[in-house]
């Protein structure tokens, strides 16, 4: 099980993430907008925690990231797709408490269930869950994420 790591949530990262989703809501970028003030400052889009990948030390899907050691091997679990045969099958979030720009989240990951299924076109399908919890600097659990990854024996057109 990987060690927990810190994920500092800065305003620029939230802005860039919202922009990538073509999202112009002021709550995700403008601290002075009345709508942002009404929610206690800049908050984050529903899928923003995915960008914790930038801070995950053993994140496998960034082969050009400069590292002191060799790049981590892809684990083939539900970490959000994969190189080659891996695909992201499902993603689920539970929102317990808002994440704000300026928060420092602690990210804890553990494996969930895994199972096998016979696919129609892609041969045998191996599913694996990863559960990730995002807890803020006050110890408040903000988001629980459950990712389901699938490994196939050959490329599929889903």
């Amino acid at each position: 099980m990987p060690d927990p790591y810190e994920f500092p949530v800065d305003r620029s990262a939230v802005m860039l993430f919202a922009r990538a989703l073509l999202d112009v809501r002021p709550e995700f970028s403008d601290p002075d907008d009345p709508a942002t003030k009404a929610v206690g400052g800049i908050v984050t889009p529903p899928t923003f925690v995915q960008s914790s990948a930038h801070w995950q030390p053993d994140y496998p899907l960034d082969l050009t990231r400069p590292r002191k050691g060799p790049p981590p091997a892809h684990r083939g679990d539900g970490g959000g797709g994969g190189l080659g045969r891996g695909l992201h099958a499902e993603q689920h979030y539970e929102y317990h408490h808002p994440i704000h720009a300026g928060d420092t989240l602690t990210v804890t990951t553990r494996p969930g269930n895994s199972w096998e299924k016979q696919g129609k076109r892609g041969g045998k399908l191996l599913f694996a869950e990863t559960i990730t919890e995002y807890t803020n600097q006050d110890g408040v659990l903000c988001v629980t994420a459950r990712s389901v990854g699938v490994q196939t024996e050959r490329a599929v057109d889903q």
Partner: peptide
């Protein structure tokens, strides 16, 4: 993420309690 944007545009930036999808 784009699907989530439609939901927050419709319901508000902090309205969601759960959100899950299959691809």
């Amino acid at each position: 993420g784009l699907t989530g944007r439609m939901l927050t545009d419709w319901l508000g930036a902090t309205a969601l309690r759960k959100f899950g999808v299959r691809f």
